[in-house]
Simulated assay, not measured.
Amino acid sequence: MEFLEIIKAIILGVVEGITEWLPVSSTGHMILVDEFLKLNVSPEFMEMFLVVIQLGAILAVVILYWKKIFPFTFDNKGMHIEKDTFSMWFKIVVACLPAAVVGLLFDDQLNALFYNPTTVAIMLIVFGILFIVVENYNKGKRPTINSLADITYTTAIIIGIWQLIAAVFPGTSRSGATIVGALLIGVSRTVAAEFTFFLAIPVMFGASALKLLKFGFSFTGNELILLVVGLVVAFIVSVIAIKFLMTYIKKHDFKVFGWYRIVLGIIVLAYFYIIK
């Protein structure tokens, strides 16, 4: 295998690790990166690779938030069940249902209809504007939901519907859509981000499993190396990106990501319809 191919896998892992958690659309970035940096692999493997390296990103959430997401504790008296954690997981499942059902039934059709630079660019810009509008609307207001325990099933369903928008329209950003939806209904920035991280665990595990099943498990040696490299890099970079985001939003709002999305959307449109 050429060393250059490993470098490409590393770059893709870096892009995934950063953009999966920051609300800037991993799809928008991957479309641009793929134009200039193509792995020497089959289209089928590439499609699977871009989804499955998300498992590395998910592992970062699992490790960083293990105490908050694992529903069992152990001491000298044995095992104990954390009821609040179990309750949170039931709410996560409820929030994931809309996107899961639509994804299972219409994944191929939605990709064929909407996975294109125009849709991605438009959704980048639309949700960039939404971030700015929502943050301006919320300025001076105190959030009503300040902990994960405060999230009700109704709140979870509403956030899940916003996640469905991201599942249908590439470029929306799953984290971007769910954070916007959460902010609109009074969830604090920190809780919105954490709930979004936890929502990603079943969603991305499910998406990766589907892609692996469609592709099969008959990897060549080179393909396996590229996949492992992408996974490991996505994990390492995700740890850094998550820590950065949680530190950043304690003192700042999401408007900078809104402006970034608008600029990126314009760049995508300009490249595919003017420059290319």
Rank of each mutant, 00 (worst) to 15 (best):
M123W: 03
I125A: 00
I125P: 02
V126L: 14
F127I: 04
F127K: 10
I129H: 11
L130M: 15
F131R: 12
F131G: 00
F131S: 03
V133C: 07
K139L: 09
G140T: 03
G140P: 05
P143T: 10
P143V: 06
I145M: 02
I145L: 13
N146W: 00
S147H: 05
L148N: 11
L148C: 06
A149R: 15
A149E: 15
A149L: 03
D150R: 13
D150W: 11
T152H: 11
Y153Q: 07
Y153V: 10
T154A: 13
T154K: 15
A156L: 01
A156V: 00
A156T: 06
I158A: 10
I161V: 15
I161K: 12
L164E: 03
A166R: 08
A167G: 14
F169Y: 13
F169P: 00
F169H: 11
F169R: 10
P170G: 09
P170L: 04
G171I: 04
G171W: 03
G176D: 07
G176E: 06
A177P: 00
T178L: 09
G181S: 09
L183S: 10
L184H: 02
L184N: 05
I185Q: 09
I185V: 12
I185S: 06
G186M: 01
G186Y: 08
G186F: 07
G186C: 05
S188A: 13
R189M: 06
T190K: 15
T190V: 14
V191T: 15
V191L: 06
V191P: 00
A192C: 11
A193F: 10
A193N: 08
E194C: 07
F195H: 10
F195V: 07
F197C: 11
L199G: 09
L199E: 05
A200L: 03
I201K: 14
I201E: 12
V203A: 15
M204R: 05
F205N: 01
S208V: 02
S208T: 04
L210D: 04
L210E: 06
L212M: 15
L212C: 11
L213R: 11
L213P: 01
K214W: 02
